[in-house]
């Protein structure tokens, strides 16, 4: 390949300070108010329950819940407890960490449609008990595979989405 004309930037130029860089780490910290819908949902998780909410107008049951229907634009207050089982809508097999390093064993994020909620309503979580290799995972999990929540023990639950340890395939 023909070299480009001009002077190329070298690693040496950066490490010796011939070309300067500036560094700043922002201290951005937040403490978000969960509000009515999310607080009720998170409290449900703490008790080992999946809570949804029903819209009497479009007759959808929504999870995660919200206190208004975004389609009917009306307030909602009909809370319903849903089963902690559902079906795989889709999943991926992730081999990369946040810092772009490779994982030895992959993680499996999945969208799970919860039984009793309206079609397309589900929660994002991770799969467990599905094997450590791509072959094993894709053999075990299909779109539509039934799954169940595996909860942390009572004493460890704190009202967070991670109160569910993972979902596992059933049946």
């Amino acid at each position: 390949m023909k070299p480009f004309s001009g002077t190329s930037l070298t690693d040496h130029a950066l490490t010796t300070g011939e070309v300067l860089l500036t560094y700043w780490k922002v201290k951005a910290e937040y403490q978000w108010d969960a509000g009515l819908a999310m607080s009720t949902y998170l409290n449900g998780l703490k008790q080992g329950k999946l809570l949804g909410i029903h819209c009497p107008q479009c007759r959808r049951t929504l999870i995660p819940p919200r206190v208004f229907c975004e389609l009917c634009f009306r307030p909602l207050d009909q809370w319903v407890e849903l089963a902690n089982i559902g079906k795989i809508n889709t999943y991926s097999v992730s081999y990369v960490n946040w810092d772009a390093t490779r994982r030895q064993t992959p993680e499996v994020p999945a969208v799970i449609e919860i039984d009793g909620a309206s079609p397309g309503m589900g929660i994002l979580h991770l799969m467990g008990e599905v094997g450590d290799t791509l072959e094993a995972i894709t053999r075990r999990l299909k779109v539509g595979t039934p799954v169940q929540a595996v909860w942390k023990p009572d004493s460890e639950r704190e009202g967070a989405i991670t109160d569910i340890r993972y979902f596992r395939p059933i049946g």
């Binding site: 108010d33 509000g35 634009f73």
Partner: peptide, 26 residues
């Protein structure tokens, strides 16, 4: 402070009132 509502719930309240005030639907 407004710890009992999320920012979404706060906006919903303002939006419902604005549409009722104008006499329109979103």
């Amino acid at each position: 402070i407004s710890p009992e509502v999320s920012f979404r719930e706060m906006i919903f309240e303002a939006a419902v009132k604005a549409y009722a005030d104008a006499g329109i639907r979103p």
